[in-house]
Amino acid sequence: MLSDCLLIVFISICTALLGEGLTWVLVYRTEKYKKLKAEVEKQSKKLEKKKESGESSDRNQKKKIERQEEKLKNNNRDLSFVKMKSMFAIGFAFTALLSMFNSIFDGRVVAKLPFTPISLLQGISHRNLGGDDYTHCSFIFLYILCTMSIRQNIQKILGLSPSRAASKQGGGLFSPPTQLTK
């Protein structure tokens, strides 16, 4: 059982690296992305500073900030659009990979959970497993957990995660890349 667990951790490290590598080839290294990202970061920081420093009721100031916010939003949208195309490609590739792993681990209990998941999660944690013991863990549950932790950390180490200022100002549009498991 331990070998299964370790294999799953290894698989998720590999897929995370592969995913980041593919995104780098398709997105991160392109001039358009670099330019847009630098712009968004600069604007976000500027906007944050402005918002912090002047809480004046000056109308002109407010209008200026609003205009900048609008510009930032547009840039953010462009940025997500650039990313989206490659995300789709990678999404398809990984769905295929995942279904392959799924069939390899089909019906196999890969680990025993030290807790009973809430009923909402039992569909995932007990997927394709027989029996009523809900502490039995399926491949997909462990894989999702591993990916959540490993992918984020790899992005952080490689410096590929979006900056805090940008994600704070950009709201929901500028979200980190979607998880592989979707």
Partner: peptide, 18 residues
Amino acid sequence: LMTSFSTFVVAWILLYSA
């Protein structure tokens, strides 16, 4: 917090199962 939580759960499950 979320990333730390998933790291924790993975380590917990792995050692507990083993």
